[in-house]
Amino acid sequence: MHSAGKWMPLAAVLGVSLIVSGVALPFAVSMLASSSGPASEGLHLKGKVDVLLYDESGKIKDERHFDNLIVSAGVEGVASRIAPHDGTVNSPAPYNYIALGTSNTAADPAQTALVAELPAGASYARVQDATAQYTTSGGNKVILSVTFLPNQATGTLRESGIFNAASGGNMLARQAFASDIQKAATDTLTVTWTITLSPT
């Protein structure tokens, strides 16, 4: 361990691979130091979710836009990509499944799953975005977008989350809807999550 007096001026950029879409997601974590003290470093993750409900003719019936919470387990999952450790969240699986549920319980950092995910079966399963996009336009962003087709996830919807498995697995982020979304059997629902990465 180095004492504060031993820190030397340093300018380094660490290339990190954060796997979200099934391919390596490169982003830079900058660490700058001066002779007065150790390096200052940080990485901030901010989430946003957009939900659009379409009727059978393709007309928008409902539209929602929310900021969302990156849960503690999700933060640990990201950390394990940077430095694998012996914690409870260290799976290498990418976070590219979007799930839906029926609880409007407020999002909390301690949550590790949706409060009431729809039961898996013939009419519901998490949907995977295996080609999720990474873009630097307007910031460093990971964009996941999936569509629940007619006769899928029908009913009252109140929450959504990002996971790294088709069932179970680890949750990266969760959002409860401010009010119910009613998806009819003939409706189509598109859910888009945007995770923005920026230095703090």
Rank of each mutant, 00 (worst) to 15 (best):
Y95N: 04
V29M: 07
G161W: 04
P26E: 07
N68A: 08
T192G: 05
T188Q: 11
Q111C: 01
P119M: 04
G5Q: 03
V49A: 06
W7P: 00
H2C: 00
Q182T: 14
L144H: 08
S91F: 07
L149N: 12
S160P: 05
S137L: 05
T190H: 03
A165G: 07
S198T: 15
M8K: 07
A153W: 08
N151R: 13
D67T: 13
T112E: 09
S57Y: 11
P150R: 03
H85N: 12
K183M: 04
N140L: 06
S57W: 03
I195G: 01
N170G: 01
L100H: 14
H44N: 10
L114G: 06
A132T: 09
Y54P: 06
P109H: 04
H85R: 09
F148C: 05
G139I: 04
E76A: 15
P150K: 09
G87K: 08
L114D: 09
V13I: 13
I181L: 15
R64M: 15
S40W: 05
N104H: 13
F27K: 02
P26Y: 01
I70P: 06
T194I: 06
N68S: 12
G161R: 03
N68M: 15
S103E: 12
L197E: 05
A110K: 11
V51K: 11
T200V: 14
A28W: 00
T156L: 03
F27P: 00
G74V: 05
